[in-house]
Design a binder for these strands. Sequence first.
RNA 1: GCAUCGAUGGUCUAGAGGUAUGACUUAGGCCUUCCAAGCCUAUAGCCCGGGUUCGAUUCCCGGUCGAUGCACCA
Length: 576
Amino acid sequence: MIDMSDVYDKINDLTKRRGFVWPTSECYGAVAGFIDYGPLGSMMKRRIEDVWRSFYVIQEGYYEIECPTIGQESIFIASGHVKGFSDKMFQCPHCKEYLRADHVVEGGGIAGASTMSEEQLSAALAPITCPACEEVIGTVEVFPFNLMFQTTIGPGSQRSGYLRPETAQGMFTDFQRLLRFYRDKLPFGAVQIGKSYRNEISPRQGMIRLREFTQAEAEIFVHPDEKDHPRFARYAGYEVPLFGQTQQQENSAPLVMTMREAVDTGIIANEYVAYYLALTHQLLVRIGVKPDRLRFRQHLPDELAHYAEDCWDAEVRSDRFGWVETVGIADRTDYDLRAHEKQSGQSFTVFIQYETPKRVQRRRVVADMGALGPKYRGKAKDIADALATTVPGPDGITVTVGSEQFFVPKDLYKIIEEEVDLPGEEVRPHVIEPSYGIDRMCYAVLEQSYDEEIVDGEERRVLRLPPLVAPVQVAVFPLMNRDGLDSIAEQLTHTLHEHHILAEYDDSGAIGRRYRRQDEIGTPFCITVDYDTREDQTVTIRDRDSMAQVRVPVDRVPGIISDLIEGKRSFSTICP
RNA sequence: GCAUCGAUGGUCUAGAGGUAUGACUUAGGCCUUCCAAGCCUAUAGCCCGGGUUCGAUUCCCGGUCGAUGCACCA
């Protein structure tokens, strides 16, 4: 009935007009890839983040941390972003087009381009024709384009720093502190909501692809051999549409199945990943994503990061952009902790006690320091340490210390065979990472909430936002701004504020106009003070979606509105 | 980043080498006893920089932003 084909344009228009999202620093000309959240957008975004917190922090018990958005170079050397987050590019000398060197080389029929050096790529490109202008490329320089914003820390040192391309690294670099905080037990998790930065080459698509964006990420550290979620029962029967590798390859529809089935049949790698798929589904639906516009797509083997065991994207279908990746849920194994261990030289393991100590046979090489000392002098200690980690030969042991080799005859050490009780072992946890793009969630919610209908021959624009995320929670109107109705309405507004409800008072213009104003920004309920209020202390509550009204005593309003916002009851169950 | 097209009050829009039309919105007032009613009044605009010109919002060049395609990215 209503043409929704250019919903994106309508959303863009509405969000600009009504203060949800603005182009940034417009007075100097906006910059692509950056946006400002206006008053209502900031409020809505905050509410969405708070729903996220209610799941991850309150329900799951993973506390939130807050790390700097600028990180020193070592972090991103370890994470692989310094090296791996850059594309090797070149500029076609003829048409000035910037192109991915490896893609063009592969397109030219040469295999293995992804592992080539810049020089090799440059050489390989020379005889290939440019896919943009079809000229033979010829001599060209291949250069790395890193998606990270680089900066320097401090005035003199010129120490290199980067704006973080994801919030995740903070949870990894704080691993040992977090482990202690959670009293040395697995599993535990920490989350972070904050800004991340990627210097996209050509961002478009409004809120979908930004150079500065908000992520909400959880890093859950689990025992590598225990990927059964302790509270899996919560979501075992929860059904989710799964667009697995097989369905994608066979071009078939997503399978709807319970998480129990998905894990048992091996479609999802383990209970942890399945658990957060289901949780994500529940979360996205709660903020206003329609279930029929939501699916979980598994990464195909060639797009799966080499270290990841399994990865699923929650995709939300947009009228304008198709299926948009909005959340990524990955089992990253111990890749990140291992990388930081290597880069920092620190330990990123957890000591796990066995239930009963393990009795093991152990053979130790113990040096006779009384003999080694006089013989090797200053090097005796190093030699003894080296002995401890070697396997003895029949007559002695040859050890390497520094660049020197020493043959240590067998009478200078003793071999001790012993049985010892091992109380436990050092384990490097695996990481389960649900990573949410908050801006994309905001856009999805706006797009899917947008509706138009004809009421009495007039178009009504309404954002059918869930009350939980609507920026303004309730509006209060006096039917007439006189006869004392206005002061009663103002008083009610104050009372609502005292109940921590964001209520907006409006007495300007006809009552119908005021309803429509609130409809357009998604305010779920409007309260009207009329002449009856003066007689019997009742007001009407009007529901945004049905436009229906019920009359209730004014002193019950705060309680009813709170219940409606929190979803403890629905509008249709309100009785006078 | 390349190519094409575009940019006029908050929004939509008319327009011409001589500072701009109309509607909606917003604000104030009148009116109005529940869904953008009516009347009066007001606020508010030619994307930025340079060039041509007596004069440029209009023509030219460059930039910014946006749309589309390519490329890139997720």
